[in-house]
């Protein structure tokens, strides 16, 4: 499958252990810089009440929504115990810059 990649910033733009929001067209994505150095991305809005996941506390690879504490697994996008799931977006680091795969973004534009 062919993917298209968009650069969303440099690795230094997200402190380790935190997340940041990025708006890509109609899509709002939360990008996280994990303790183990990985970058993972999911939909920014919590499926519960649209809480801002990029502002959540990151624990391992789980982010906890700051509004009501829903927990999202960043690898799978699964919401713990709610049977809901968020979309995940492949992320890659090339030469110190973070790229997200945004196939869907371009299609919706």
């Amino acid at each position: 499958m062919m993917n298209t990649w968009v650069c969303v910033g440099s690795v230094d733009d997200i402190p380790r252990g935190e997340g940041r929001k990025v708006a890509l067209g109609d899509l709002v994505v939360a990008v996280f810089h994990l303790d183990d150095g990985r970058f993972l991305a999911v939909d920014h809005h919590c499926p519960h009440r649209r809480g801002p996941l990029a502002d959540g506390l990151l624990c391992g690879k789980t982010v906890v929504c700051p509004l009501h504490g829903w927990k999202v697994d960043l690898d799978s996008g699964n919401v713990h115990g709610e049977g809901a799931a968020l979309r995940t977006f492949p992320a890659e680091v090339r030469e110190g810059r973070i790229y997200l795969s945004t196939r869907e973004v371009l299609l919706t534009r």
Partner: peptide
């Protein structure tokens, strides 16, 4: 942190390197 209060800003479309641009086009 320089981005303590700020979101990320995506690179403008078309500003990526060539190979990606071609992917965009084919897409």
């Amino acid at each position: 942190h320089p981005r303590q209060f700020e979101d990320l800003i995506p690179a403008p479309a078309g500003a990526s390197d060539e190979s990606q641009e071609s992917e965009v086009r084919s897409q």
